[in-house]
Design a protein around this nucleic acid. Sequence first.
DNA 1: TGTCTAGATGGCAGTAAATGCCAAGAAGGC
DNA 2: GCCTTCTTGGCATTTACTGCCATCTAGACA
Lengths: 214, 214
Amino acid sequence: MTTLWDRSRQAAVQAILDTALRLFAEQGYEQTTIAQIAREAGISQRSLFRYFGTKEDLVCGDQEALGELLKQSVRRQPAEMSAWDALRTGFEVLLTANHTPERALELSRLIFDTPSLHARYIEKRLRWQADLLPLVQARLDTGSRPAPALQAKAIIATVFACADTATELWARGEGELDLADLYDQCLAAVRRPCEPNTTEPPHSSEGDPASAAV
Amino acid sequence: MTTLWDRSRQAAVQAILDTALRLFAEQGYEQTTIAQIAREAGISQRSLFRYFGTKEDLVCGDQEALGELLKQSVRRQPAEMSAWDALRTGFEVLLTANHTPERALELSRLIFDTPSLHARYIEKRLRWQADLLPLVQARLDTGSRPAPALQAKAIIATVFACADTATELWARGEGELDLADLYDQCLAAVRRPCEPNTTEPPHSSEGDPASAAV
DNA sequence: TGTCTAGATGGCAGTAAATGCCAAGAAGGC
DNA sequence: GCCTTCTTGGCATTTACTGCCATCTAGACA
């Protein structure tokens, strides 16, 4: 049952969020202070920080829930589905789980245009990637040469790289592009053999076991 | 000619860096304050911020120079070399350009173990990716179906995803692994066709042009 | 060599995000 | 109606970071 506390909490969250996003759109993220948001939302600064742990969470706050949803979706896919397809389906579920498209587009643009937000966003998705590792690993050929952990990590990283690339193009576009199509095109560009020449990689790894943070 | 100012500046940078990395290793990144670093390095807090604009730059500061180096290396590759191979060779050059292997390993571990640093690190590399875009685009088949910009963006993002994955595994390992080998294995895991089944992607993009920041 | 200028430094005050603490108030169970 | 529990707001404090200004010094030049 839903108590009054829950309801007023929900209302407060919504009011804060609306105020914050409006101000961010009007004057930019960095130029908007927590004090101003709190004032205009009619709440104390202290309480605002209780609802949203950080300023960045005002924008990237839903990410935890979405990550959980993605994990559940991937887990739900039939066991014989390949890791690639399971992840693709998982992402597709995310698309349906969001606010209005306009809001999502607005949020994406804000994130991609604001370095500190972008960093936070990436950080949250790194968590998703770590959480997905065991699920993806379970879908791989067991006896393959590259260690399954490496293979799974590489696949997940690539899928996210393509998803991010697609999202960025979608956010920078006028909204006339389809996100799922963009994702498929990105992945196709990556998993297709080389276009002009299929040269073997130079492979000049002359025994330098330790090197830099590339 | 190298003036005395340049030299003392160089010395100060080195002293600050040594102090900072020692403290980060001893007590962790978050637990170490700028005030403490400045005190132990015998410099004012104000000057420290003049050398390194942010605390994160104490760790990720070299990235700008490395990005430039990568760009130069890729540009230098023969025009007929594929985008994949040119990028791979570029990364290989980076490996030779770093501090001592131990230092690089220490830095990498710090970055991969500290979420906020990790996010900043990736953010800086996104800049590299944007800079590489025209160079990679020039190496692509001109008449290909997916827009070349998308194709180039996806390829670059994937290459970086694999490089990061390889670096993380290398950093978490005991140093006995070869970074270049790890990179090749990651890329191989990604560009090889599906292992168990080569199912067609579900492709259930039922006309939802706009959706969330995936 | 002495002087003048540009650049480096340090101190100080200030901003903004975030956290801890505590007292006051409202909601829920009885 | 009372008491517990959760919420709220105000206050002080920490930490990263910036602007301003006085001071000092390396380097150029007469």
